[in-house]
Amino acid sequence: MNAIVKTAEAVLLLLAVVFLAMPAMAQERFEDPELRERFSELTRELRCPKCQNESIAESGAPISEDMRERVRRMMREGATDEEIRQAMVERFGSFVSYRPAFAPRTWALWIGPFVALVIGVGVVLVLVARNRARRQLDSTPLSDEERRRAEKWLRDE
């Protein structure tokens, strides 16, 4: 008897938990899997301004909740990803974008690695060319004049 009551209690508790959680989940999710995918991608590339180094998809800060809500609303109103990103950057600055725009301020960020690569390749090429030139010099036979001078030095030693 006691066991039955316990089981019933447990089932009720489980049901309560599931049903209480449902409104929150319904708010979180889009029915359409494509929209859901878009939402999750967008919120993963927007950064929480409060708890930095977390995306708004992960963060539990109130501001992230507000931002997710705004993303959801703009998506429902038919905004493109670009418009949504733009709206967030306009308010919270380029900081909130994990994918910074290609602007004068971020040129170094975008181009820097390629510049470093070009410099690195250049340095390697110069070193290789120089090494090759030196080796060629080593293997060139001495001219008669050079041989005479070398023999003279050896004699004098």
Binding site: P49, K50, A61, I63, D66, R70, R91, F92, G93
Partner: peptide, 12 residues
């Protein structure tokens, strides 16, 4: 609702 706050970019 924090609507002006949101437009101002208030995060705390």
């Amino acid at each position: 609702e924090g609507s002006l706050g949101f437009d101002l970019g208030v995060y705390g």
